[in-house]
C-alpha cells in the first residue's frame, strides 16, 4: 500500500528562483524506509518539507502536481535540518518539551508520561529530562528534537540530516533505533552518511538539481549514480561495513564494490 504519492510534483520557493523539485514521480510504500541522497542543493530538504505537507504555506512559492496521501489521517513527524528552530523553548525542561506535542495530540497524562520516559530512555538522554533546553549543547538539542518526533509514534517519520551534530556513540544509538523501527513505520530520511544508508535503507531516491536521477534498492542506486552524486568516501564504507559484518564481507555488497574500486584507484595512483 502506498502512503505518499508524488505526482509530477514541482516546486519553486519564488517565481524567479530555479525549481527546487522538478517533476517528481514517486510512490512511497507503507513501512518502507526511503533514503533521499544527493549533493547540497539537490532538493533533499525541499523533498522532506513536501512529504511533511509543509510547503503550501510559503506565500511566493510556485508549485505544480501533487503530493497525495491515500489515507488522509496519517500522522507525520519531521526532524528539520535546522533543528534549533524546532525547539519551542516555551517549556522549562526537556521532559515538558518532549511532552508538548503529545499534549496537543490530546493524549491522556499517563500515556504522555510513559511515552516521554520511554523515548528519553531509548535515546539514552534520561539525564537531560529536568534540564532547560536553552542550556543544552547543539548535539543534545538535536537528540531532543528526534526524541520529540519519536514520542509521537508517527505513521511517517521524516528526518532531514538527523546525524549532523551527533557524536559517534549517539549516531550508533539512533541507527539502532531506526533499524528497530524499520518495517513498523514509514521512514523518509535525507542523509549522506553511508553507514546509516547501508543499515536502514529499503529504497534510495537519488536527487540532482531537483530531479530524481535514480531510484531503487541500495545496490542498484550505489552502483549507478551513488558515488558520482555524493562523492561517498568509498574506502570508509567498505571499512565500516567490514567492521559490522558478522560473516565477513559479501563481494556483492555495495560497500565492498565501492571500497574495492576506490582502493584500487588509490593504489594505482601510488604506483
Amino acid at each position: 500500500m502506498n502512503i505518499l504519492i508524488f505526482e509530477q510534483y514541482s516546486y519553486s520557493y519564488a517565481p524567479d528562483l530555479q525549481a527546487a523539485l522538478k517533476d517528481i514521480n514517486l510512490e512511497i510504500k507503507k513501512d518502507e524506509c526511503t533514503v533521499i541522497l544527493g549533493p547540497s542543493g539537490a532538493g533533499k530538504t525541499t523533498f522532506c518539507l513536501a512529504a511533511a505537507g509543509l510547503l503550501t504555506s510559503y506565500p511566493a512559492s510556485v508549485s505544480s502536481g501533487t503530493v497525495k496521501k491515500p489515507v488522509p489521517t496519517i500522522r507525520t513527524a519531521l526532524v528539520m535540518q535546522n533543528f534549533y528552530s524546532q525547539i519551542t523553548y516555551l517549556r522549562n525542561t526537556v521532559f515538558e518539551e518532549v511532552a508538548f506535542p503529545l499534549e496537543n495530540m490530546g493524549l491522556p497524562r499517563p500515556e504522555i508520561f510513559k511515552r516521554v520516559n520511554d523515548v528519553l530512555s531509548q535515546m539514552k538522554i534520561q539525564h537531560l529530562a529536568m534540564r532547560n533546553p536553552l542550556e543544552l549543547s547543539g548535539g543534545e538539542k538535536q537528540k531532543i528534537v528526534i526524541a520529540t518526533a519519536l514520542a509521537q509514534k508517527p505513521d511517517v517519520l521524516i528526518l532531514d540530516e538527523p546525524l549532523s551534530q551527533l557524536d559517534p556513540e549517539s549516531t550508533s544509538y539512533l541507527s539502532d533505533i531506526l533499524h528497530q523501527l524499520k518495517g513498523s513505520i514509514t521512514i523518509i530520511i535525507a542523509e549522506n552518511d553511508p553507514y546509516l544508508i547501508l543499515k536502514i535503507a529499503d529504497k534510495i531516491a537519488a536527487l540532482s538539481n531537483g530531479e530524481i536521477v535514480s531510484y531503487g534498492d541500495v545496490s542498484t542506486v550505489f552502483n549507478s549514480v551513488g558515488g558520482k552524486l555524493v562523492e561517498l568516501p568509498a574506502w570508509s564504507i567498505c571499512a565500516r561495513e567490514y567492521e559490522t559484518a558478522e560473516d565477513g564481507l559479501s563481494s556483492s555488497s555495495p560497500g565492498y564494490i565501492l571500497g574495492y574500486k576506490a582502493a584500487l584507484k588509490k593504489l594505482g595512483g601510488q604506483k
Binding site: 549533493p39 549522506n192 562523492e231
Partner: peptide, 12 residues
C-alpha cells in the same frame, strides 16, 4: 570552528 562539516557533503 564549531562543527564546521555538519550538513556538508564530502566534496564541500
Amino acid at each position: 570552528l564549531d562543527e564546521p562539516t555538519a550538513g556538508l557533503s564530502f566534496r564541500e
